[in-house]
Design a protein around this nucleic acid. Structure first.
Lengths: 151, 151
DNA sequence: TCAATTGGTTTCATCTTGAAACCAATTGGA
DNA sequence: TCCAATTGGTTTCAAGATGAAACCAATTGA
């Protein structure tokens, strides 16, 4: 779905990612999948999404390799589960969460938290160089791919 | 814009974030802003977005505190610049980029890179506990806010 | 000074979304 | 075992969002 415009050919990896999961519902579905939901009705109840839209989103997420359907275990129905690729969206979820926590809640307003299972410690994202040094955003620059011979 | 549904009241910070920047164009505009673009025409050329849609997005991003307009420096026209809040979207951009690099490019296919300005070293995201231990996604769990008195 | 560019707005056709009705298959309970 | 409810959708249709193009005032540049 989402025909309006495609960035599939873009050299920017962020743009391609948005091409795959950049609509309103897809990432919320993925979030719920991380939260353990697997069934059509669970997603629908959780999100309050129209059923036709949910069906469409589950279909494209599956086509694109973010979700997979597994025949079942206890039931004749199917389950939707995150693929390896889908699980690799975890940092995106954490980043969105961290931004929301910081800016979108009033002081004192309650929200859910992401913690390590065994210790209960908060989970955070760090931006680092490949050799492990933490850096701040303004020290990072994007190096474009050479199109003709310009840097 | 984007009237279809709101998650403003949601207790999940990710959902609220998607409420603010979760449409097709907004994050691409933010990406370009990180890349140094400031002018209406620059965004339009870079994204190939319809002008009415761009105007609408710039307006709501500004209303929501992601961008701000600064009167100018060399010109009578305005500039759009990331606010502090907007700059805090950087980890989201990096996360999307990292996902795209990993899964959305054919082996050998070229893409832009994010590097530290001074050293040229690649920039990556790490998921860690608050005390700095790196952890994997499946060790993290979401703790919901107690609604009535259920955990 | 005059043409081109910028930064939009308006209009309109097309596409997407959402709500509701509908339906076959599955499941759960009496 | 039988029937009702639930699940996992699809179809239909109205309303909303998007995109292209035309248009326009203000700015800039030569």
């Amino acid at each position: 779905m989402v025909k309006r415009k495609s960035h599939k050919g873009d050299y920017c990896p962020s743009a391609r990612s948005l091409d795959v999961i950049g609509d309103w519902w897809s990432l919320l579905i993925v979030r719920d999948a991380f939260d353990g939901l697997t069934r059509f009705s669970e997603f629908q109840r959780s999100l309050g999404i129209a059923k036709n839209i949910l069906a469409s989103r589950l279909r494209t997420l599956t086509e694109r390799g973010i979700l997979e359907t597994v025949p079942a275990a206890d039931s004749a129905r199917q389950q939707y589960r995150l693929t390896r690729m889908g699980r690799d969206l975890f940092p995106v979820m954490v980043a969105l969460r961290q931004f929301g926590e910081r800016h979108l809640f009033a002081p004192g307003e309650k929200h859910s938290h992401l913690v390590e299972r065994d210790t209960g410690k908060a989970v955070r994202l760090d931006i680092r160089t490949e050799d492990g040094r933490p850096i701040s955003p303004d020290e990072a620059v994007i190096v474009k791919v050479p199109e003709t011979d310009e840097a």
